[in-house]
C-alpha cells in the first residue's frame, strides 16, 4: 500500500501546485478558504442543534471540488451560478463569513437576500454570483444566458455553472448544455457528483457511470476528476477556462465527491446510506488530504497551520456574534422589492 507521501509524489511531487502555476501563497489561500467553508458549516450545525437557527445545508466534503474549480476563475470578472452547497465557491468569489452568518440567521443585513431565502441561496450582483432559488438546474440556463451576453459584447468573461448530479436529471440541464454547445459559449459546467439526490443513489438517477459522458452529446469535452483532490480540480478547470477564453466553448467537469452530512438539517441519512460508507469517505476528506500535501511540500508548517486556524476561528466567532445580534427585517420589509421600482400591487 502506498503511503501518503508516495501518493503525493505520484501525482507530481511536492511542487505539484507550482507546476500548475500556483504560488505557495496561492496554495495556502486555497487551503484557508476550504477551512473557512468547513468551519462556518460546522458552526451552523452546532447552532442549529442548539435550536438557535432553523436550517442548515452543507458544503462539507465538497470543499475541494468547490474551491479547486473556483480558484481557476477570476473573481469579479468571471461569473458563477452556484448551487446551495457552494459555500467554497462563493467565499472564493468574495463573500465573507459574516455574509454567510447573516444569511444563516436570516437577518435584514444578509447581502444574499435580506433574510428572505433559506441559507445556501447565494447571490451578489457586485461579486458576479448569480442569485439562486430552490428548484434545481434552473441556474444552468442562467449561466448560459450570462455567457451569451459576454459573447454578444465580445467580452472574455467565463461563467461557471455549478450543480449536483441530482440536477442533471432536469430538462433545464439538457437545455443549457445544448444551447451552450450550439453557440460555443464560455460556460464551464461543474457537476459536484456526491452520489445522492437526497436519498436516491446515482444508480437510480442515471444508467451511466460518468455524467461527463453526456458532454459528447452536446459537442464539447467532458472530464471526470477526483473531486476530493483540490489541485486536480484546479487543473481541469484551468484548462476548461483557457479553452472557454479561446472561444472554443464549454466543458463539463464531473467532480466525484461525497457529502459528509445529511442532505440538510431536516434529513436523516441513516435511512438511505450506511455509516460505514460515510466513514470511508471521511477518510478521503479533501481538506485533510490537501493539508497532508501542503505539509509534505513544506509550506504548511505548524506555525502556519496555527495562524490559519486562528484566523478562521476568529472570522467564524466574529461573524456568528455579529449576525446573531443583527436586527431582523421589519414587517414593512415584507412588501419591498416585489419590483425594482417600488411595490406594485
Amino acid at each position: 500500500m502506498a503511503t501518503k507521501t508516495q501518493e503525493v509524489e505520484a501525482k507530481g511531487g511536492q511542487s505539484r501546485h507550482r507546476s500548475l502555476g500556483l504560488s505557495d501563497d496561492q496554495a495556502l489561500r486555497i487551503y484557508e478558504v476550504m477551512r473557512l467553508a468547513r468551519a462556518i458549516d460546522e458552526r451552523m450545525w452546532l447552532i442549529n442543534r442548539q435550536g438557535r437557527a432553523p436550517f442548515v445545508i452543507s458544503c462539507q466534503g465538497q470543499e475541494g471540488a468547490q474551491v479547486g474549480t473556483a480558484a481557476a476563475l477570476r473573481p469579479g470578472h468571471d461569473w458563477v451560478a452556484p448551487y446551495y452547497r457552494d459555500a467554497g465557491v462563493i467565499l472564493w468569489f468574495g463573500m465573507t463569513a459574516r455574509d454567510q452568518m447573516l444569511s444563516f440567521f436570516a437577518r435584514r443585513e444578509d447581502p444574499n437576500s435580506a433574510g428572505r431565502q433559506m441559507p445556501g441561496h447565494f447571490g451578489s450582483r457586485r461579486l458576479h454570483i448569480v442569485t439562486g432559488g430552490s428548484p434545481v438546474a434552473t441556474q444552468l440556463l442562467h449561466a448560459a444566458g450570462v455567457a451569451l451576453a459576454s459573447k454578444q459584447r465580445k467580452e472574455d468573461a467565463v461563467t461557471a455553472a455549478y450543480f449536483g448530479e441530482g440536477a442533471a436529471s432536469q430538462g433545464d440541464c439538457h437545455e443549457a448544455m445544448n444551447f451552450a454547445g450550439i453557440h460555443k459559449l464560455a460556460v464551464i459546467f461543474v457537476c459536484e457528483n456526491n452520489g445522492y439526490a437526497i436519498s436516491v443513489p446515482q444508480s437510480r438517477q442515471m444508467a451511466i457511470q460518468n455524467l461527463a459522458d453526456r458532454a459528447a452529446g452536446y459537442g464539447f469535452p467532458g472530464v471526470v476528476v477526483d473531486g476530493n483532490d483540490v489541485l486536480a480540480c484546479y487543473e481541469v478547470t484551468r484548462q476548461a477556462v483557457e479553452r472557454a477564453r479561446r472561444g472554443e466553448g464549454p466543458t463539463l467537469i464531473e467532480a466525484k465527491t461525497y457529502r459528509f452530512t445529511p442532505h440538510s438539517s431536516d434529513d436523516d441519512d441513516k435511512r438511505y446510506r450506511q455509516a460505514e460508507e460515510v466513514a470511508i469517505w471521511r477518510q478521503k476528506d479533501p481538506i485533510q488530504r490537501y493539508a497532508t500535501y501542503l505539509r509534505e511540500s513544506g509550506i504548511l508548517t505548524d506555525p502556519v497551520e496555527r495562524e490559519i486556524t486562528e484566523r478562521v476561528d476568529q472570522q467564524v466567532d466574529e461573524a456568528t456574534e455579529y449576525a446573531e445580534q443583527a436586527p431582523d427585517p421589519t414587517p414593512d420589509d415584507l412588501m419591498t422589492f416585489v419590483y425594482k421600482q417600488g411595490t406594485v400591487s
Binding site: 461569473w79 451560478a81 450582483r125 448569480v130 434552473t138 444552468l140 440556463l141 442562467h142 449561466a143 448560459a144 444566458g145 450570462v146 455567457a147 451569451l148 451576453a149 459576454s150 454578444q152 459584447r153 430538462g171 433545464d172 437545455e175 443549457a176 445544448n178 444551447f179 450550439i182
Partner: peptide, 24 residues
C-alpha cells in the same frame, strides 16, 4: 441580435434571464 433558439421554451426564458443578469 435575433437568435433562433432550439425548440425549448425553458431554454428561451432561462437564457434570457441570464442575459438580463449580464446587462442585456
Amino acid at each position: 441580435r435575433v437568435i433562433d433558439s432550439p425548440l425549448a421554451e425553458s431554454c428561451v426564458v432561462g437564457v434570457a434571464i441570464g442575459a438580463a443578469v449580464n446587462g442585456m
